[in-house]
Simulated assay, not measured.
Amino acid sequence: RDEPWKVPFFGIGNETWGCGGNMRADEYAALARQYSTFVRDHAGNTVTRIAAGANIDDYDWTEALMQGAGSPGFSYQAISLHYYTHTGPWEDKGSATEFSEEEWYLALARAARAEELVARHATIMDKHDPEKKVGLVFDEWGTWWNVEPGTNPGFLYQQNTVRDALVASLHFDGFHRHADRLLMANIAQTVNVLQAMILTDPDSGALVLTPTYHVFAMNKGHQDAASLAAHVLLEEEPRVVDGRALPAISASASTKEGTALVSLSHLDASAPRTVVLDLRGREVAGFSARVLTGEGTAAHNTPEQPEAVAPVALEDVRPHERGLEIVLPPHSFTTVELQLA
């Protein structure tokens, strides 16, 4: 290259609480502050320095990093967070495609926990940095299942079902609600590893788009938009799973340029549900809706059936006196695009 690469983000280590050094929080905080000094801005390139943050709910780690940063945003401008979703213990995380209804809900409840983690780490950051100069970077998340039978265990190759799609959509909803502190959110891998967007087949050369890919694509309209508050009111009490309430519907919304995008995750494994989208103060000039689901909760795409789970137009949407009435299929993810009057 004639010109150097621009490096907008620079991680100061990775998982330093474990495989990245087995350090204590205060020990790493001092090193992160020291090393950040030498990650400098050059020739108009401004670097966001990211300190290696907590594993799951290690709130003491976040406290130590925020205390050790000195003036907020001076040493490092962000700290990271890692959390994976699985239903079994670390040694036997569960199958990607063979699971019970109980495991369906357990995975979704554990995915929903991601928002709790963001909120609690953000609360600690707010104490030290009320002006939000330091961002939170959720840079490893997603499902982690047992590898597919017959594959190399070291390659972490796993299938991807409707369940994975809703795990992703639940994460997105939580991310949207905390956009004021969350600077970045990266699913751990993209191709052939863990909860990937794309799977390739070495025998046929096929490239398969996973249900998770489609959730990412359907959420693109939220990019560069302003987050809107989305309140879900349900008549029934939420299901309690793994000690946590799991409402049947999760939602998030955003607006830009006279439009709005509403994302609806319907977590019920077997029953459809009718909802009313109440805009409270705005009228709908036009709308379109798409839905992602499959014949069952374990439906997935293969080289032989690459579109077993793919978005299609949702026809069961009609005007309502308060906005729109929508019938959500079971185990589905829906986006509704609105033109606002």
Rank of each mutant, 00 (worst) to 15 (best):
K6E: 07
I12R: 06
G21T: 05
N22T: 03
R24Y: 07
A30H: 02
A30R: 05
A43G: 14
R49G: 06
I50G: 07
D60R: 15
A64Y: 06
M66K: 01
Q67V: 04
A78Y: 10
A78L: 11
P89H: 04
G94K: 05
T97D: 12
F99L: 08
E101C: 10
W104K: 13
L106H: 07
R120Q: 10
T123D: 11
I124D: 15
K127G: 10
D129P: 08
E131R: 14
K132A: 14
G135L: 15
T143W: 04
Q159K: 13
N160L: 00
D164A: 04
L166C: 00
V167T: 03
H171P: 04
R177H: 01
H178C: 00
A179P: 00
D180W: 05
D180C: 08
R181A: 10
M184F: 14
I187E: 09
A188G: 02
N192W: 13
L194E: 15
A196M: 09
D203M: 11
S204A: 07
T210I: 08
H214N: 15
H222E: 03
Q223G: 09
S227I: 08
P247S: 01
T255E: 13
A260I: 04
L261Y: 00
V262E: 03
L264P: 01
L264V: 06
L267T: 04
D268I: 00
A269S: 13
G286Y: 01
F287A: 02
G296W: 09
A298V: 07
P303D: 13
A308I: 12
A310T: 14
P311V: 14
E321N: 11
S332M: 07
E337F: 00
